[in-house]
Design a protein around this nucleic acid. Structure first.
Length: 466
DNA sequence: CCCCCTTTGAAGCTT
DNA sequence: AAGCTTCAAAGGGGG
């Protein structure tokens, strides 16, 4: 039952049958547990003195071999062959893209297709970490013991940390001096102080760090600008990323958290989490999880007639709120279950064409894009051949099973795998109709044959979304 | 201006 | 303890 239609499963081996064999046993260790501690919880903070310090370039250089030596090296989770995998960056050349072992971990040069919100003047070289990594550092310089920072959290003026509110970014600062930057921030800080609630953002997790780094590349390759689409692609790439690569991001994220905690010892995500919304009532199991979904996600584009009014107008979903939020209680008034229980997984689209026609409701032009054929020569995995199960989607490190004992270098304190995580990227049946679906999008995404890299623009077919 | 989409992971709250 | 919810980034799109 819960299996989405095979055609919607984006993850599969190039032989088209990922389920024919269990995922490699080596895919089991959360990369961020490399330090042998139960990571992922605040409890790890400060526990490991060495980890409390930023990695030196030499350390970064060591990271790879170390990981490999501890048995982490492994083939890509989704072993596309170089010729078949639609994402060039996931080809073996990927390791060059993310040059973690070099001081320029985050290629910031425009030529690399990256852009950074932080001035390149930041002393990246001092530690080998990217400027992004210093988002928590008030001075832009990372201290061996950032906890000794003279800047109390509430005085911090770092843009990435203290902002007037969530999802509010300062303008691109690539072309601004740090002083301008600071003034700007001071102004915003004053505003924030006025409210007496400076918004300290959450530290970025591994995936967010990865997204931040890779977004520009995906944008360049696909000439897509819609983040929703980009994120789907990035999600797929993330899954396809080798463990070693992911481990680096987990490590980065772990250090970000550490640094964040040291800079803002009193900060708690609670402040942000409870900022605006009340927590919602636990969903009714009988509703199969759909009660917590907004109409769009619950019914899909092909059933917009079931959407609540605000949803149709792209406003805040009232059912979503009713489902435990603001009304905090008894609802189930709204035939939520109709598509509901388990239904999410089996409300396969009936008419793609129609839904595409309806899809103008959102991320716009993509619906038109969806009807385009793939760029010539692009070898996309056949959806029909794709068979996958969410349980094999390796959606997260938690899904992995470790072949190693703790003595082998890992503290295998794996939390039990979540029963059935969200649909892995692209496995949501609704994706078939979703113009933003990975399958739809990646079908339009540029395929860069690794052998054709080096700026051979002629081989890049770009679908412009305008 | 606000909210939507969309992704994964972390953290905290709720049950 | 398990499950759930929110928020991190991003930027185009719609009302």
């Amino acid at each position: 039952m819960g299996l989405p239609p095979a055609g919607h499963m984006p993850f599969f081996c190039h032989n088209g049958d990922p389920l024919s064999q269990p995922p490699p046993a080596h895919m089991g260790i959360p990369p961020y547990q490399l330090d042998g501690k139960g990571a992922g919880s605040m409890g790890e903070y400060g526990v490991s003195p060495p980890a409390a310090q930023p990695l030196s370039p030499a350390e970064w250089r060591r990271l790879g071999p170390l990981l490999a030596a501890t048995g982490l090296s492994r083939p890509a989770m989704y072993p596309f062959s170089a010729g078949q995998y639609p994402y060039p960056m996931l080809s073996p050349e990927m390791s060059q893209v993310a040059s973690w072992h070099t001081p320029s971990m985050y290629p910031l040069s425009p030529g690399a297709g990256f852009r950074s919100p932080y001035p390149s003047s930041l002393p990246i070289s001092t530690s080998g970490l990217s400027s992004d990594f210093y988002r928590f550092s008030p001075t832009g310089l990372i201290q061996p013991h950032p906890g000794l920072s003279p800047h109390p959290p509430h005085l911090s003026s770092h843009p990435a940390i203290v902002t007037p509110g969530p999802k509010q970014e300062l303008p691109d600062m690539n072309h601004r001096s740090q002083m301008d930057h600071k003034n700007n921030i001071d102004a915003k800080n004053a505003e924030a102080n006025e409210k007496k609630k400076p918004h300290i953002k959450k530290p970025l997790n591994a995936f967010m760090l990865y997204m931040k780094e890779m977004r520009a590349k995906v944008v360049a390759e696909c000439t897509l600008k819609e983040s929703a689409a980009i994120n789907q692609i990035l999600g797929r790439r993330w899954h396809a990323l080798g463990r070693e690569e992911q481990a680096k991001y987990y490590e980065l994220a772990r250090r970000e958290r550490q640094l964040h905690m040291q800079l803002y010892p009193d900060w708690s995500s609670r402040a942000n989490a409870t900022r605006g919304k009340k927590r919602k009532r636990k969903q009714d199991p009988a509703e199969g999880g759909n009660s917590m979904k907004k109409c769009r996600a619950r019914y899909g584009l092909d059933q917009q007639n079931q959407w609540c009014k605000p949803c149709r107008r792209k406003k805040k979903c009232i059912r979503y709120m009713e489902s435990g939020g603001e009304n905090d209680g008894n609802q189930s008034d709204d035939n939520l279950g109709s598509c509901g229980s388990t239904g999410d997984a089996h409300t396969p689209p009936e008419d793609d064409t129609e839904s595409l026609n309806q899809s103008m409701s959102s991320p716009g032009g993509l619906s038109a894009l969806s009807s385009l054929t793939s760029p010539g020569g692009m070898v996309m995995p056949s959806p029909s051949a794709s068979v996958a199960s969410p349980s094999v989607s390796v959606a997260s490190p938690y899904m992995l099973q470790s072949p190693l004992t703790p003595h082998e270098g890992y503290d295998v304190k794996l939390p039990p795998p979540p029963p059935l995580p969200r649909h892995p990227v692209g496995t949501n049946p609704h994706d078939a109709n979703n113009p933003l679906s990975v399958n739809q999008l990646t079908g339009q995404c540029v395929r860069n044959d690794p052998s054709e890299t080096n700026g051979n623009k002629e081989t890049r077919s770009i679908i412009s979304v305008t």
